[in-house]
Design a binder for these strands. Structure first.
Lengths: 150, 150
DNA sequence: ATTATTATGTTGTATTTGCAACTAAAATAT
DNA sequence: ATATTTTAGTTGCAAATACAACATAATAAT
């Protein structure tokens, strides 16, 4: 069976590295674009959902969101029915940055898929979604402190 | 055109997160397994090659290698013909850890590919290699300080 | 109704990551 | 032969990341 972990890691690091360099132009520091796009697309999302969506530790997400708030990109509102949760929304400033992120991501996607047929692109996307589903469970399991046996 | 950046990022973070937790058992701190496997498979590799292979900043690789050296996992030897480079080799201790890393990675790979047919697995692997090639050039380009226009 | 458990979020601390700037050897150009 | 550029590696700093431990609200169990 072929290994997919390594190419996936390589591609992910390369893309993330490129994005982080390019998003300095819109005053986003390392990693922040990840959170901001999700918040723009899911206004009212809560922290734990956000962390789970991105697959990042919740304390990392917490500090990223704190920083986005401090920089005026997002704002948090308390819920009326649930005093514990804090709903996260993009501000106007955050919404202005959003198209820039999308444009960059679309371009990187274009570069990544260069030379693949329409059919191949679709296959790749479909297969990656399956892999994402497969691995998500193990991530939650291991993060929750459980031990996989193999 | 479907987006592949997001699933790839999600999968990569999830897998890396799992690995980092599981490799504490063999006294590897975050990220170190990445370097150690490559060094074991390419004994005598130099730092810049290693960084480029993994797609990580060379200063990050430098510090990871320093730490692996301090912990007795790898050793560095100077080259006779080239005074500038330092060849990196695994130690016996490093070589002992290697099979553990491989076993964990193979298991994660298995989980990731669950439910995919042999044919699909092969396709996915082939397509990812193409994507890796596509994006590698842009990574080198942007890391070298150049600006992409899109 | 009270207790136990889970869900959501935060802070302390240690470590990793990477950009900037630098040194020096090697390779290339003049 | 000398000067220039590229290659390889390092250190200073600032920031991100995540584990541990915690607080408290919400939910479930008794």
């Amino acid at each position: 069976m072929g290994d997919i972990l390594r190419p996936i890691g390589i591609i992910a690091r390369a893309l993330d590295s490129i994005s982080n360099i390019e998003f300095k132009e819109v005053d986003l520091t390392r990693g922040q674009y990840l959170y901001l796009v999700r918040i723009c697309e899911n206004p009212g999302i809560i922290l734990e959902q956000l962390a789970s969506l991105i697959k990042v530790d919740k304390t990392t997400a917490a500090r990223a969101v704190q920083k986005l708030e401090k920089n005026g990109m997002i704002e948090r509102r308390s819920d009326v029915t649930n005093k514990k949760i804090r709903l996260i929304f993009p501000t106007d400033k955050g919404r202005e940055v959003y198209p820039f992120i999308i444009r960059e991501n679309e371009y990187s996607n274009l570069v990544a898929l260069k030379g693949l047929s329409e059919e191949e692109q679709k296959q790749l996307g479909d297969l990656l979604l399956k892999v994402e589903l497969n691995i998500s469970d193990d991530w939650e399991y291991v993060k929750a402190g459980h031990k996989r046996n193999y």
